[in-house]
């Protein structure tokens, strides 16, 4: 089992820091804290071993490990963690278990644990999925967890999302209108039909699963990608923004690396954890752009 290796590693990682700390503040509680941390860790391990022995089913979690700053982890590899299976366990639950019981250096993003924050999009058994929304019971075992493809890996399961966020910002993802209501306290009402039209597109949680799955976004770095185009759709189709804004938004998405790059592979639509019909939205924007251009003829 490779957990022994990582256990040793995580300790060597913390020791120099702790030693420096102790040197700068002699007689501090650092040493004690370190001692208690160590005790706690071995207690967690013992607990894990007990739980593993007691549990009916154990699932093996194969996790991608990489850290350019740590010797021995600079070459990507997979670590296997045994996790006692419990009913309703998600991939995120299993990862948290592995981190808390076996290797505290195992790194991944998570926050709300209920598919809202969009932090834990991972490549699970070959598909982009949200860790917190994917049941272990629904997967083939052993479960293999990797960072999102087509993004730079920072450490373990954490990828650099900057490029994705840049693309999202490029479509100006905020409500803007020239069409202000007359009265001071008047609301900007949206018709029920219009709300229904954009409903699905508003569900995006910026997790990046779609863009990671997209073959074109992988090859063409300038391509806006499904998430950003869906965001543009959300505002371009919002009638409250008015004609001039809609025109502006269509101009943004119909640039060379905009909607035309989409090859309708449906990969994004397949992986979207919020079930947004991304391909449908991109196609509608293409048609709107063509229709708008044809009008001038």
């Amino acid at each position: 089992m490779s957990t022994d290796v990582t256990e040793r590693e995580s300790e060597t990682e913390t020791e120099p820091e702790a030693a420096a700390d102790a040197a700068s503040r002699p007689g501090s509680s650092t040493q004690q804290r370190q001692e208690s941390d160590k005790r706690e860790r071995s207690a967690m391990r013992e607990r894990a071993e007990r739980e593993l022995a007691e549990s009916d089913r154990t699932v093996e979690l194969e996790v991608y490990r990489y850290d350019p700053d740590v010797e021995g982890k600079a070459d990507p590899r997979f670590d296997t963690f045994p996790v006692p299976f419990t009913k309703g366990m998600t991939v995120l639950d299993a990862l948290i278990y592995a981190r808390d019981h076996f290797d505290s250096s195992l790194t991944f993003r998570h926050s709300c644990r209920q598919a809202i924050c969009g932090s834990d999009a991972l490549f699970i058994n070959g598909h982009q999925r949200l860790g917190c929304k994917t049941q272990m019971a629904d997967l083939e075992w052993p479960v293999r967890v990797e960072p999102l493809p087509h993004a730079e890996v920072r450490k373990d399961l954490v990828v650099d999302m900057e490029h994705f966020y840049d693309q999202m910002e490029a479509v100006e993802p905020y409500f803007r209108t020239d069409d202000l209501p007359s009265g001071d306290l008047a609301e900007q009402r949206q018709s029920r039909q219009n709300r229904e039209k954009i409903k699905m597109s508003t569900r995006c949680i910026w997790c990046g699963a779609c863009t990671s799955s997209c073959n074109i976004a992988a090859g063409d770095e300038e391509y806006l990608g499904p998430a950003a185009i869906n965001k543009a759709y959300r505002f371009a189709m919002d009638e409250r923004e008015g004609e001039a804004m809609r025109d502006h938004r269509l101009n943004v998405v119909e640039k060379e690396h905009g909607v035309w790059r989409c090859q309708t592979q449906f990969s994004c639509t397949e992986v979207c954890p919020k079930d947004i019909p991304l391909t449908e939205h991109i196609q509608e924007l293409k048609r709107e752009a063509v229709k708008r251009n044809l009008k001038f003829w």
Binding site: P76, G126, P149, H150, E152, F164, A217, E221, F266, T269
Partner: peptide, 22 residues
Amino acid sequence: MRQSYDRGPVEDFGRWREFTAG
């Protein structure tokens, strides 16, 4: 979004078997 180093199985052989119909 491109890789500056070899990601191994994530980027190459593991992928095509996971392709969907589209």
